[in-house]
Design a protein around this nucleic acid. Sequence first.
DNA 1: AATGAATGAGGGTTCATTCAT
DNA 2: TATGAATGAACCCTCATTCAT
Lengths: 212, 212, 212, 212
Amino acid sequence: MSVVKIMWKRERRKEERPGEIVKAAFEAFSERGFAATRLEDVAALAGVTKGTIYVYFETKEKLFEAMVRHYSSRMLADADAMLAAEQGSCRERLEAFLSFIYLRCARNRTGREIIRFIVTESKSFPRLVEDNYRDFIAPTMLLVGELLAAGVANGEFRKNVTRETAEIVLAPMVFLSILRLILDDGLKIDEDAYVAAHIDLALNGLLAPASR
Amino acid sequence: MSVVKIMWKRERRKEERPGEIVKAAFEAFSERGFAATRLEDVAALAGVTKGTIYVYFETKEKLFEAMVRHYSSRMLADADAMLAAEQGSCRERLEAFLSFIYLRCARNRTGREIIRFIVTESKSFPRLVEDNYRDFIAPTMLLVGELLAAGVANGEFRKNVTRETAEIVLAPMVFLSILRLILDDGLKIDEDAYVAAHIDLALNGLLAPASR
Amino acid sequence: MSVVKIMWKRERRKEERPGEIVKAAFEAFSERGFAATRLEDVAALAGVTKGTIYVYFETKEKLFEAMVRHYSSRMLADADAMLAAEQGSCRERLEAFLSFIYLRCARNRTGREIIRFIVTESKSFPRLVEDNYRDFIAPTMLLVGELLAAGVANGEFRKNVTRETAEIVLAPMVFLSILRLILDDGLKIDEDAYVAAHIDLALNGLLAPASR
Amino acid sequence: MSVVKIMWKRERRKEERPGEIVKAAFEAFSERGFAATRLEDVAALAGVTKGTIYVYFETKEKLFEAMVRHYSSRMLADADAMLAAEQGSCRERLEAFLSFIYLRCARNRTGREIIRFIVTESKSFPRLVEDNYRDFIAPTMLLVGELLAAGVANGEFRKNVTRETAEIVLAPMVFLSILRLILDDGLKIDEDAYVAAHIDLALNGLLAPASR
DNA sequence: AATGAATGAGGGTTCATTCAT
DNA sequence: TATGAATGAACCCTCATTCAT
């Protein structure tokens, strides 16, 4: 394949190019952040030259935004449907949702890197935060909030669920993402055990029955 | 008289310069990240010129590292002492420790920005993560882990505390930091209520007594 | 039927393409000068794509030269014939020629822009000047010079007509062109009055009869 | 001198640098026009590196504007004073003024190149035309207009002096400038004879006394 | 003949770093 | 010690040109 490639000086692949460049941009920006990434690196990763990037993207900023949009767009997509589809008690539905979101965010490199982009570039790309908050974070919190409220209503959950509980319930997932992001392969954690511990703690708390 | 004054100013400055530059570096790097920050911005904030920075710091990288080291060094310092000093039940000590660490990290801009630096520059400054993990994150987890173990041992806490529980217990604090970092003043959360909800959930869990 | 039509369009296009490109080149190069004009602009104005230009012209330079040649070629064409055809006194013939050349150069956008090209690109395209001087400027001066000489010979004109008089007689026409070029619509001059004043001054001079 | 220069890797000449760069800019922009001139050429001519230019000028455009402003600022400066100081008849004062302005514009390379800049870059730098028209061209025309009006008033000049006469009287000077600009050393004209012929024609016209 | 995706050399601009003062 | 003029490597972006279709 690469031999053929070498023979073809100019490959014309209008359909595929943008996708390849966005993918390369994801890898490059993940590796070094927006400012420190050279467009030449993106180009090299995509197997094109610098100029080609500008055929499809106006500026480095626009490429970055397009890339984040591409990778975050599919995130919430079916979360809603998934939660709606889920049957059973609120507890079961919460467990299912947590498992689902772990899969989508923490245990999925794409999800983790999106989180990194948001933290890393929130100052330079305020829209990145705005969009993600509006389209992903806020709706997720809302979903969980409604689930919690339903649980309180039907007596499954304790009455002291508050406005902040959703954030607190989801926090361990974000934290695991962060730990993976900064420690990479250095993180020695059994993720299944982590998720199980998370669910257990969220549902049952630390206190022994006797202590209550 | 004015001669004496001028000399005084110079003498004092000599001592304070590095500190002023480190402070300026914190502000500048917080605002734009490492790569996008110009040494000239740091210099302007410090009230000196670019050249002066090189009197005290070899490179931009060294300045960044020195700055992070400076601001994170005092973090753990007294956490240990504080926890040791704390009396009372494990539950009380945990509550105290959580409050303490919220104060130190999430509700303190310096702490939050250190978290951002770690997430933002972990790839470019692996030592930053290594040092912080070794000196701060790991010890903190260890402290909490020991506290939890003690609570289990004396019957205060449930028996299913695991290796991962410490991370999960602390996660909401990190998540609050992240939310503040990315939403800045846009975050409409009552932090006292958040901390209270966090402690309540960690101790009691979601499930209503009847559901258990 | 539509097939025939389409073929017709193509056939006709084939003939017209170079002309359309040259026309577009004139507009584009007029607007921004040689260096600052992008071939893409020319293409867009011509209703073709960049590649098409290269079907007809080897380089940007060659296109520019062809364009200037095209628009300046017809300038002198009939000036000679016109002057030869003109009957009457030398004074009448000079008046006729000045009116003619105003029409051709100053009051005609094409003529003005050619003048601009010559001034603008004389350094980068020495041939442009050489060709225009040889084919247009020099012959024009010669024509006027001969007319002036004839006038001197037959007693119509004063005897102190010199080698430089032709340039001086024609200068106001060039100056008007320049003013139009740089002031565009901002030039508030009655061109008819200008031409009349020019002819009057050239023939009669400033001095009142009494002063001579 | 150059030996010394070679030994000094970095010359610090804050006072002289901007002037040297402006001078180099004049040479470079004269030679190739704004768009085709590389800042590196300017730097080389000024004996500095590209970066140094940006110590003193924000952009290439700003440098160009500063350069034109520098070289055209002194043009009108004393023209007014000169004309006011001039004694004698209107005819003598006009002759003196024409000689003066030939010296300032046509026979002075700086003056000629300013004229070229105005023609060349009028589209890209409208301010260049505006400023020069307001500060130089319009006042010059006004001066000459007043002189002509005075001459008409005192009977020296013919009564048919009009609004356009000033332009026509000055045109040969501009035309000589243009010819020099485009033909450079190729222009075989005796400038003294040209000026003399100009003045003679302007004053006396072409027509022989008998023809009037 | 016409297209337009792809190229890559080159230019404007930035900025960490140096060093004479 | 402090300065800031000067440097030059490097980066983003442009655009004339090529060439497979």
